[in-house]
């Protein structure tokens, strides 16, 4: 079965084409375009306009790269949520148009669940705890009796948003994470910053405020501040992941989301896993960031488990939480 998936929850519009081969995911094509705001954060309407401009060409490009005929596509999938309304609607509209013109079935996918499933489909892990870290999302997710349940999450802002907000203060452009990572590599002096864990949850607003103050005080190098932010925030992420693993008694950890491209975060979670003799998995980079292939793969799993949607049911849901999905395919 071949599925074309469209991702459009936030800054990225992506089209992926995947095929299921012996229950594993084979990615035939995976192309994305990312909206870059001129200043500040994502403007939802402008991001949606960006997506509308690029979606048609991305679909053509993906079909070409997959080296298939469009008639070979068996299923259309799209990101139903969670995310920014205008972006979600744009991606969903494109998916509906494709479904109707090609006369193929359509399913709406939960973006967060798709991040886990692409990991399970491509890395060989079976029953992991996922640390899902992106701009808006920071969650530890694991499967328990029919659902992916959130064991820990941020109580205020996502890790990526925290890094972006800090980056803006010191004059970096969106996305700031990779630039902060570069600066942090040149830092080596640890500045004490708030480390906030509440049970299995984490919070970053106190850390952000304290880091801002450190910048204003001008007593430390920016490189050292970036280093300290990363060390503090990522240690907290490794800790909530370990807490979720201990609590659920699971022995695999999987990374997902754009922030997992950060090498220091990867290294920390990998060390944590090693120390507790657990297995560590991370999908390749283009499958970690927001992308269409993960939507397509989750679409196949849903469709094969008997989930069907008619066009009227293909609404979007900005607040589509991970634990709202009935996981019929497991």
């Amino acid at each position: 079965m071949i599925c074309l998936g469209i991702e459009g929850t936030a800054h990225t519009i992506g089209v992926g084409i995947v095929e299921d081969v012996d229950e594993k995911c084979k990615v035939l094509a995976n192309v994305i375009k990312m909206y870059q705001p001129k200043e500040g954060g994502i403007h939802p309407r402008e991001a949606a306009n960006h997506h509308a401009n690029f979606i048609a060409n991305l679909v053509i490009d993906a079909i070409k790269k997959a080296n298939i005929d469009k008639k070979e596509i068996d299923l259309i999938a799209f990101s139903k949520g969670p995310g920014l309304g205008p972006c979600l609607r744009t991606a969903a509209t494109a998916a509906r148009a494709l479904s109707l013109t090609l006369d193929k079935p359509i399913v709406g996918v939960n973006h967060c669940v798709a991040h886990i499933e692409i990991g399970r489909g491509t890395t060989g892990c079976e029953d992991p705890v996922l640390l899902y870290v992106s701009g808006a999302n920071t969650q530890t997710i694991a499967f328990a009796e029919g659902k992916y349940r959130v064991f820990g999450e941020t109580l205020d802002i996502g890790i990526g948003n925290m890094l972006d907000k800090f980056g803006r203060i010191i004059g970096l452009e969106f996305p700031c994470g990779p630039k902060i990572e570069k600066l942090a590599e040149k830092g080596d002096k640890y500045i004490d910053l708030p480390y906030s864990i509440k049970g299995m949850d984490v919070a970053f607003s106190g850390l952000l405020t304290a880091a801002e103050k450190t910048v204003r005080d001008k007593k430390h190098r920016i490189e050292d501040i970036c280093y300290s932010i990363q060390e503090t925030a990522f240690a907290a992420l490794a800790e909530i992941t370990e807490r979720a693993m201990a609590h659920t008694e699971k022995n695999e950890v999987l990374l997902g989301g754009g922030v997992t491209c950060n090498k220091r975060l990867r290294e920390m979670v990998k060390t944590m896993a090693k120390e507790r003799k657990a297995r560590f998995y991370v999908p390749r980079n283009d499958l970690c960031v927001d992308n269409g292939a993960m939507i397509a793969w989750n679409g196949i799993l849903m469709y094969k488990s008997g989930i069907k949607m008619n066009i009227k049911e293909t609404t979007i849901d900005q607040r589509y939480r991970t634990d709202m999905v009935d996981v019929k395919w497991r």
Binding site: Y190, Y195, E231, T232, E239, E267, E275
Partner: peptide
Amino acid sequence: KGYRIKEL
């Protein structure tokens, strides 16, 4: 915990 720096 080997994943975090000694100070922390």
